[in-house]
Amino acid sequence: MPAINIGEVSKGTKLIFDNAPWLVLEVNYVKPGKGNAFYKMRVQNLLTRYTLEKTLRGGEKVEGADVTDTEMQYMYFDGSGYVFMDKTSFEQLTIPAKAVGDDKDFLLENMDVWVTLWNSEPISLRLPNTVTMEVDYTEPAVKGDTQSRVMKPAKLKGTGATVPVPIFVAIGDKITVNTQTREYSGRVLK
C-alpha cells in the first residue's frame, strides 16, 4: 500500500503499525498556535480488537493497510475452518476457526455476514447485531412470569452455544440475541 500523509488520515482509515492492521476510530488534530502539529488518534487492532491511543507528528507518512469488508454467506464448517461464499463473485473462502472466535456461537448456515480481508486474507467477521436463534434445550418454562428478572441457561440450536434467558422461555422458542453483548434481547412471538 502507498504511504499516506498523516493529514489525510480520518475516521475509518486503515493503517499498518507494528506489522498489524489498525482501524482509525477517531483522529484529533492538536497544535499550539505556532508550533509542532500532532495527531492524537484512537485506533483499534483489527486482529485483536484491542484499542489504544496513538500520537503521531504532523508531516509524517503512514502506511495504509489493504483492508476491505466483503459481504459473504456462511455455508458450513469443514472440520478446521468455516466456509463462506462471496455474494458477489460466488467464490468460496475458508476462515480459520481462530479468526471466527466466539462468533461461531451465533453463526448459522446461510447467514449473511461481513468478512474483513487483509491483503486478501480473512482476519475477522462481523455478525448482524442481532440474530434469531431457536432454543434447543432449557429447564421447563415458568408460564406467565414475564416480569421476573431471574435467568436460566438455554442451549441454542445449530451452534450449541448457551446464553442466559428469562425463565418464561421454553424449548422450541425463537429468541433474539445481541451478538455484541451475547445477551438475550427478546422472544419472537409465534
Binding site: 492538536v30 497544535k31 499550539p32 508550533g35 509542532n36 492524537k40 500520537t55 503521531l56
Partner: peptide, 24 residues
C-alpha cells in the same frame, strides 16, 4: 510517557506536546 519516542531529540516538539496534552 508513551509518546516520548516520537519527539525524541527534538526539545521544542517535546515541549509543544506537553503543552497540548498537559497544559492547554
Amino acid at each position: 510517557g508513551d509518546d516520548a519516542a516520537i519527539v525524541a531529540g527534538d526539545r521544542r516538539a517535546a515541549l509543544d506536546l506537553v503543552q497540548v496534552a498537559r497544559v492547554e
